[in-house]
């Protein structure tokens, strides 16, 4: 009797399952943190050159050790908690901002199934059949960190930053969510794995070609949701000092910094998974595909930052509610019609 090949689960082989899980978590976490560290370097270099500067040059060859030096510097800085701040939420806020972005990575599939013995190991930390909902939920959680940070610092700039963040994220989450709706109307599944499978046939099956509008909407709204320039209203250093993280120092500030880049990775990975076929093309190596797409997106985000000035707050709200939301709704209606007609 030959044993059947089955998906590795906690009940079928607990030890192997745990080991595989830990390895996957370790690798994904390590890769994400490494990218976070070096994204800061790449961003400084790229923006530097785009502004005809050089960027960091002094630490090692072309400033390659700059992230480490920065990390060490932040580590040894004095950790200041303002005396009038709300201590608990002040300390909680940086964690609340970083954790949702890091755990969103869990549902990004990064390769084809691996077969060890008689077990199939999916290359994805957590296989959720409601993956897309989970993404939206975690994106919604992220805003609490920003608002809490702004409120608990007990400073007017931080508060304004926090309030802006809440308004901005709520309005853009809506359009981003609606843009994704069009995708799973086509894929008929909410699992990220299923969505990648649906696009895996060839490059032409990528949803970016079937849903170009939804793709653009998602990228722009995603940008707004993670507060990157030109939508970095909550930070807006030229008007709000540093917005919600004005009062933070030392490692707490570093957490905000890491969260910003982790969010960038997450949005890039989600956009790649939902619209660009995730790990399933164009080269045969899953992880390479995904990373390549993520890097391309991140470069694009950095490029945008070097190019465009910040939008005004009323422009931001106008854009979100009067342009993106109707467009996203119209996209859903059209997609619905097409899906019904084709079937």
């Amino acid at each position: 009797m030959t044993p059947e090949v089955e998906v590795l689960s906690l009940s079928s082989h607990p030890l192997l399952f745990l080991a595989a899980m830990l390895v996957k978590i370790g690798v994904v976490f390590g890769v994400v943190l490494f990218i976070v560290a070096y994204a800061t370097w790449v961003e400084r270099k790229v923006i530097g050159h785009m502004q005809t500067r050089l960027g960091p040059m002094r630490t090692f060859w072309h400033g390659l050790l700059q992230p480490i030096a920065d990390g060490m510097k932040l580590f040894f800085k004095e950790d200041i908690v303002p005396s009038q701040a709300d201590k608990v939420s002040y300390i909680l806020a940086p964690m609340m901002i970083l954790v949702p972005s890091l755990i969103t990575v869990a549902i990004i599939p990064f390769g084809a199934d691996l077969q060890i013995g008689n077990y199939i190991i999916p290359l994805q930390v957590a296989e959720l059949n409601i993956g897309v909902l989970y993404i939206l939920a975690m994106a919604g959680l992220g805003v609490y960190g920003t608002v809490l940070a702004g409120w608990s610092s007990n400073s007017k700039y931080s508060l304004i930053g926090g309030v802006r963040a809440s308004a901005q994220m709520v309005s853009y989450e809506l359009s981003a969510g609606l843009a994704i709706v069009a995708v799973f109307m086509l894929s008929e599944t909410l699992s990220t794995r299923g969505i990648v499978d649906a696009q895996s046939a060839s490059v032409l099956h990528w949803y970016v070609f079937k849903q170009p509008l939804a793709f653009c909407l998602f990228v722009v709204c995603g940008l707004a949701e993670i507060n990157r320039t030109p939508f970095d209203m909550p930070e807006a250093e030229s008007e709000l000092v540093s917005g919600f993280c004005t009062e933070y120092s030392s490692m707490k500030y570093a957490l905000f910094f890491m969260a910003e880049y982790a969010n960038m990775i997450v949005i890039s990975a989600i956009a790649a998974t939902l619209f660009l076929g995730g790990w399933s093309g164009p080269t045969p190596f899953g992880a390479v595909n995904l990373l390549g797409k993520v890097f391309a997106f991140m470069f694009f985000f950095i490029w945008l930052r070097a190019t465009f000035p910040r939008v005004r707050y009323d422009q931001l709200m106008y854009l979100g509610w009067k342009i993106f939301l109707p467009l996203a709704l119209a996209n859903i209606v059209i997609t619905g019609f097409v899906v019904v007609l084709v079937n």
């Binding site: 790229v46 785009m50 502004q51 005809t52 500067r53 050089l54 490029w303 190019t307 465009f308």
Partner: peptide, 23 residues
């Protein structure tokens, strides 16, 4: 205009555009 802006910054990214003097 968006494309124009992006192309200008990209042009600057190409080597040989930096004006920094490594003091």
């Amino acid at each position: 205009e968006f494309i124009q802006g992006l192309s200008i910054t990209f042009k600057h990214l190409l080597p040989g555009h930096s004006t920094t003097v490594q003091y």
